[in-house]
Design a protein around this nucleic acid. Structure first.
Lengths: 207, 207
DNA sequence: GTCCGCTAATAGTCTAGACGTATTTGGCGT
DNA sequence: ACGCCAAATACGTCTAGACTATTAGCGGAC
């Protein structure tokens, strides 16, 4: 299928840019679906009738724009936007992100000790006089902020959970580090509302 | 000056990354000053003992990070950044500029003796009949004008502050010369407005 | 004195090829 | 059936060289 994708040589527009734009329009129009693999670089080079390096230059530009994601040894994939976030008893943020072939990471926005409010106290089976470790966390996929969360833990049971979290950048990994290999959701309650100003800032979102 | 900048080959770290990091640390430490031109790509390639393409890969990474700016036909320049001007009780113009690895200097635009207006009189605890030394100064970073200021001092306490200022090109140094080793800000009030014609001229600014 | 054009310097693009590294696949042996 | 190992596949890095595009500076023609 050589030369089906015509490029103009010495037209004042770099070949790699023309290639990038052709691929980009195919991606944006959905001709190449999110999650699918692009043809290997040597094939593309053959298709466009250029050197592999020229194709690589185009792919790097697409990658910089976040349209594709190149994985060494596997291929180059059209980036999915929007992640199907499956919620079950064993839901883990990292697993959901990893399933979408993206890189999960979390950071600690703030942590403090505070008495639990009624909902938390009942949920965790704590006395209201016991202290809670409250961690506010922000979660990223491929460096883009995706969610913020407020996590409550009985302080007496987790004396250094924050340190483990800071080290592993994951709640699941931090819990594993303190001996909790697995845990289940007891209830999941979902509501929706607009972010307030502080939350929007954390999510780099316009209000 | 070949090989003065040692790279580790096949150390698991790409050569271009090592080059990027060396250049980056020189830029961030101020060894290569903002606004100056980097050596041409062929020279850098020779210096690092690599191919020009490898240097280009490093420069592109720096460019992506906004640390340099490559201009075809002219060269690659270290990007000038605005200066973070920290204001605290012990703020000094020179320190703020020095922290940004730039060269502070101040000059005297005008000086005169005048009675203080009400705000100044109260601020300095002077009688309205006492005289103030009023110094209008202009401050530079690396030769570029950055700010103009009007400074008020009780004349009785500083009989020749102007001369010391002219000698040291710094308010802090002039005060030190008359025995004031340290001083604190009592209040800082910040407002913003457009410059008038005279001010714009001093700052070499278009209105 | 001004303008034009030539030349040198410098970054940008493209090709060609070799080798490195990560991942997947499939066959072979136990 | 399972696991291990080798080959195939795919992206990543590095080198070498040629050509292009843009800019700055200089010198000559007018």
């Amino acid at each position: 299928m050589n030369q089906s994708d015509e490029l103009e040589r010495r037209a004042g527009v770099a070949l790699w840019l023309q290639i990038k734009e052709q691929l980009q329009s195919q991606i944006l129009s959905g001709t190449i679906r999110p999650g699918t693999r692009l043809p290997p670089e040597p094939d593309l080079a053959d298709q466009f009738g250029v050197n592999r390096h020229t194709v690589r230059r185009a792919i790097r530009a697409l990658s910089d724009d976040g349209l594709v994601r190149a994985e060494q040894g596997r291929g180059t994939f059209v980036q999915e936007h929007g992640i199907d976030y499956l919620i079950g008893a064993r839901t883990r943020f990292s697993e959901n992100i990893t399933r979408a072939h993206r890189d999960p990471r979390a950071e600690l926005l703030a942590s403090r000790d505070a008495p639990p409010d009624e909902v938390v106290a009942i949920g965790l089976g704590m006395a209201k006089s016991d202290l809670c470790l409250v961690m506010e966390t922000r979660h990223f996929a491929d460096g883009a902020p995706l969610s913020i969360a407020t996590n409550y833990f009985p302080r007496s049971r987790f004396p250094d959970l924050e340190h483990h979290f800071l080290e592993h950048h994951s709640i699941t990994a931090a819990l594993r580090a303190v001996g909790i290999a697995d845990y289940l959701r007891h209830v999941s309650r979902i509501t929706a509302r607009m972010p307030d100003e502080r939350e929007a800032g954390h999510l780099r979102q316009a209000i």
